[in-house]
Design a protein around this nucleic acid. Structure first.
Lengths: 360, 360
DNA sequence: TTCGGGCGTGTAATCGATTTCATTCGGCGT
DNA sequence: ACGCCGAATGAAATCGATTACACGCCCGAA
């Protein structure tokens, strides 16, 4: 493959001039510039990004480590992250942790070895396997969706408490009194927060959340199925189940279908994370939608700000309830308040973090 | 960040010895080795992959350019590709072409600039935008799922003709006579082949495929919706629609639901590419399943063979029909032959390609 | 005419690893 | 005792770019 030296030779100039011409340096004569450009075209020269990165100490690459690519929510997130990064002139390398801490670790290490300019992580594990590297502060880090309490880095996430309150109001209005929830891993913030918000909303309506109505899941379909089976085996099964992510909701649907039961007649189902398929399930699933595209964009912008020495913003955007039929027919009277939920735009200024201070 | 020189200094040896110790070179004394290892641990040293790549001219990285990440089929493919690559000691960088040739081009160029060791492509466009680079032969290339006729590189794909024949037999057996198909872009091989196989199978059963029953789509949900609407507007609409990918099937479902019609009572739906959600749609969708994991593994192995100088194998695996309820109740009598479809394992030896010859 | 100051350019150092080549040293055969 | 050989090591070249520094040249000011 042609190198910069070949171009220099072909254009009859030095490598320095070639480099300058290619990087838009001011002091290059028009003559030299055109000769270089011609030679480049002639030889089909493409600069070696590896060599360039070594010299400049920047790869113009972002790392994105997500918990599970097969989860449509994260797929969508990844897609928008790449899109925004591309418009900002960065590539992104995706690492799929598959909800396994050691895999997440593997990817973080690999990405760091490649000297990516910044890291976007949605931690599979709340404990601190990546902390040693991240906390070292050498590489800018931003957390998306999930975060880890001790880490002093910007966080971009959705706040589901409002939407969950709306959901509980909706369920209560429909007459449900025995409601169950399938939790995510306690090691993740999203796993804990969603259950807590749900429990709090329940309390506001005077509803209990007995232990046997709290299923433990791991954000995968199978765990949703198992939890739901256990609910159905109860002497007094719940009237409705809230799965705290879309895959566990899929599992729940599986379980009730396997029993020959029907949603919502025999048992209602609701989910956190809305996805296109929920419109076409039997029945369409009532879900809480996150503003994924905005989250992705905000996360990338925060990370790039960090990288390029600007102060980053932590951002929290509200999720919103989307009522469909899996919890029973929506009210036929006046449209409930939840239907008019505002488009998510709220943001919050982050308190200064050590990462910001690094750049002052 | 600590470099190899720091390690050498700390261990009291030269950089050459450090490098040798770390790469398991034979002639390094046990003493030196342990001192190096200690220093490495002490300093938390990690070799700079960028520098290493520059010197060794290999990145141990594969590029994967897919047509559309949001399509569950490709998501799954990407996931298994990464998995197999990882076990073989490679990382993978995914580029999402979004079915847009110019984006595909952008990613191919970027990946080539980063000197990836090999490229896995599922071409969004049958024409040859990537040919100039790929044909240059500098970087090993393997095509997955879709291929482009002129290119002399290994291809790993599923053969749907058998499954499509089974599907048509199934539909015919159910009494359908007016069947329509939603095609993919003519620029892709999968777009053309699936329609052709369908048309041929129809002919075998003496069924026609009139022009107005041939919808043009682009593998995205919207196009499936529009094509289906056009079918429904026909004076004599088809009794069943075969969408040649899962997203267009989703669109078709959308369209019939929007009309207040019911599947399969008013119109049947079948799809190419099976996905987990099809079990939970209303109704569950009869689909043709590709052996995605095997395809991914075969593709990675072929590419790595090429990279490491072994002769690669082109592979074609059969797809199989999965009957559900979206075309009407499956026969209640004896289980139809299609239910017993064998697990896909057939492979074929590729004719020698120029890429193989390269390595002789 | 002479000198200072850009401007355009080239030479060479540099990034952090790997690898070739030469050197040293110790052991062993004769 | 001598010489040879292999093992262990280090110095320096190398990969392909960027960039600091120096140089030559031309132009305008003194």
């Amino acid at each position: 493959m042609a190198g910069i030296k070949d171009v220099a030779a072909a254009a009859g100039v030095s490598v320095a001039t070639v480099s300058r011409a290619l990087n838009g340096h001011p002091s290059v004569s028009p003559t030299a510039r055109t000769r270089v450009l011609d030679a480049v075209r002639e030889l089909g020269y493409r600069p070696n990004a590896v060599a360039r990165s070594l010299r400049t100490d920047q790869t113009r690459t972002l790392g994105l480590v997500i918990s599970d690519v097969m989860n449509p929510y994260f797929t969508e997130l990844a897609r928008f992250v790449e899109e925004e990064a591309r418009t900002l002139g960065y590539s992104v390398i995706i690492g799929n942790a598959d909800e396994r801490p050691e895999l997440q670790d593997h990817h973080v290490r690999t990405l760091l070895d490649r000297r990516i300019d910044g890291l976007l992580v949605s931690p599979a594990d709340g404990r601190s396997p990546l902390a040693p590297d991240a906390a070292s502060g050498a590489t800018p880090v931003v957390l998306v969706d999930r975060w880890v309490p001790g880490l002093d880095v910007p966080v971009v996430r959705a706040d589901g408490t409002g939407a969950i309150r709306d959901l509980v109001a909706h369920l209560h209005g429909l007459g449900y009194r025995r409601v169950a929830v399938i939790a995510g891993p306690a090691a993740t913030t999203t796993g804990r927060e969603r259950v807590e918000a749900f429990r709090a909303a329940l309390r506001d309506h005077g509803l209990p959340l007995p232990d046997e109505y709290l299923g433990q899941g791991d954000f995968q379909a199978d765990s949703g199925r198992r939890a739901t089976e256990r609910f159905l085996d109860l002497p007094e099964p719940p009237e409705v189940v809230f799965a705290t992510d879309n895959l566990m909701a899929l599992g729940a649907l599986d379980a009730v279908r396997a029993r020959g039961l029907r949603v919502p007649d025999d048992i209602g189902v609701a989910a956190f994370d809305d996805i296109p398929w929920f419109v076409h399930t039997d029945p369409p699933v009532t879900a809480i939608a996150q503003p994924v595209a905005e989250l992705a964009r905000a996360a990338v912008r925060a990370l790039v700000d960090l990288i390029e020495g600007r102060p980053p913003q932590s951002v929290t955007l509200p999720a919103r309830l989307v009522v469909r039929r899996s919890c029973g027919e929506p009210a036929c009277g006046p449209v409930p308040a939840v239907e008019r939920a505002p488009v998510a735009v709220a943001t919050a200024e982050a308190p200064p973090t050590s990462q910001q201070r690094r750049n002052e």
